[in-house]
C-alpha cells in the first residue's frame, strides 16, 4: 500500500539511526542492510534503493561509514559498509536522543488517564 507523505517523513529520520545500529554489529552490503532492517523492524523500515544508497553515500561523506568493494569467488563483487569511530559516537548520541524523544512524545501522544476520561464521558 502506498505510504502517506507524513509517514514517509517520520520514517526518514529513523533510517540513519537504523543503518548505524545495524552496522555497529558488523559490516554489511546494500541488499543485506535492506533485508535485515526489514526483518528486524517487522517490516517497518522497508527501504528501497532510492532511500538506502543516497543515505549510505551521504553518511560515508560525513565520515560515519567507510566502504570497500569485496571480490567474491563466485558472483559479482559487493560493496561492504562498516561503521567508523565517528559513526559509533554519533550512534551513541542518537540513541540518547531517540530515547528522550520517545519518552517525551509518549507523554503527548498517549497522555495518562486520557483513555479513562473519554471512556467515562
Amino acid at each position: 500500500m502506498p505510504e502517506k507523505p507524513w509517514t514517509a517523513e517520520l520514517k526518514k529520520g529513523t533510517v540513519q539511526l537504523g543503518i548505524l545500529a545495524l552496522l555497529s554489529e558488523g559490516r554489511r552490503y546494500g541488499f543485506e542492510i535492506i533485508e535485515e532492517l526489514k526483518g528486524k523492524t517487522g517490516g517497518y523500515l522497508d527501504l528501497k534503493e532510492g532511500t538506502l544508497y543516497p543515505a549510505l553515500h551521504r553518511m560515508e561523506k560525513q565520515g560515519l561509514l567507510v566502504s570497500e568493494w569485496v571480490l567474491k569467488e563466485a558472483g559479482a563483487p559487493r560493496k561492504y559498509y562498516s561503521i567508523t569511530p565517528e559513526g559509533v559516537r554519533s550512534l551513541g548520541e542518537a540513541r540518547v536522543q531517540w530515547k528522550q524523544m520517545v519518552s517525551g512524545l509518549e507523554a503527548v501522544i498517549e497522555p495518562k488517564g486520557q483513555g479513562r476520561k473519554e471512556g467515562n464521558a
Partner: peptide, 16 residues
Amino acid sequence: AVAREILTGIDAQVKA
C-alpha cells in the same frame, strides 16, 4: 561506481 553498486544490489534482489 554508483551505478555498479545499485545494479549489484538489484541483481542480488533478483536472484533472491
